[in-house]
Amino acid sequence: MSAAVPSMPGTRRFALLRHGRLLTGAILTGALVAVALLSLLWTPEVPTRLRILAKLKPPLSEGLLGTDQLGRDILSLLMVGTANSLSIAVAAVVLGAATGTLIGIVAAMRRGALDALLMRMMDAVFAFPPILSAMMLSALLGSGRLNATVAIGLFTVPVFARLARADTKRILRRDYILAARGAGKNAARIAVDHVLPNIAGAILVQVTIQLGLAILTESGLGFLGLSISPPAPSLGRMLADAQTYLTLAPWMALAPGITIALIVAGFNLLGDGLRDRLDVRRDVSA
């Protein structure tokens, strides 16, 4: 019976794995976002409350995940820190995606000198690592939430500009664009009616992947003290604090480290899964 279709079980397991990626990513990201939202309403302890007498307690002896060098509850710090990191990452990527997509579409549709100018500007931005541009920005603006958001957002602009430009160029070669011109639509209408819907899938996948990267960058900035200002908790600064006590209290480093890894993995899985789901070639060529 099964000899007739020997490849079936394997194929199905593979399909399950692929769908599993989307599902795992969605669950992971969903859970972390839920925890972050919960932290706005409730945390086990006030995260900024210092209890010197209960400092450096290991997990379960004092709170679920122990305490840090100032006796702050690590779980509470982690929850609020996740919320802070996520909000910065989301704001930065949304900003970068909107700006970059707009630049990419304009460059592809206007072509010529404007295209060259915009894309060389993107190259210039891309040449600076986000950590470096954040350090330069903090020299200008001082450190803080806004600074981190702008720095990370700026770094994602070229990514989206390049993607949007390449995809727009591909779409503009299609005959339905000519048909739209023949129907009297101007460039702006064509961009909104035809280009944007056809590149939206690829942009969305890239947004998800960039969110993972943005979290990583934000943690790096926090580690260097360039992100959200103390005493507001951030995952990166928790890691920086933990460095000194690494042998004495390794849980201080493990908790934020594992959280960052989970967020990044969640967004990457979600992005991969979405790519598989959305990249079905709908524009069937006869």
Binding site: A183, G184, D193, A286
Partner: peptide, 28 residues
């Protein structure tokens, strides 16, 4: 003057419902 293209796979926007595609030139 309207045009019918060679490849109907490429001349219809894959993300647009048929009726919107057909109605497109009506704006004229």
């Amino acid at each position: 003057m309207q045009m019918v293209f060679q490849d109907p796979g490429g001349s219809l926007d894959p993300r647009q419902r048929i009726w919107k595609t057909v109605a497109e030139p009506m704006g004229l």
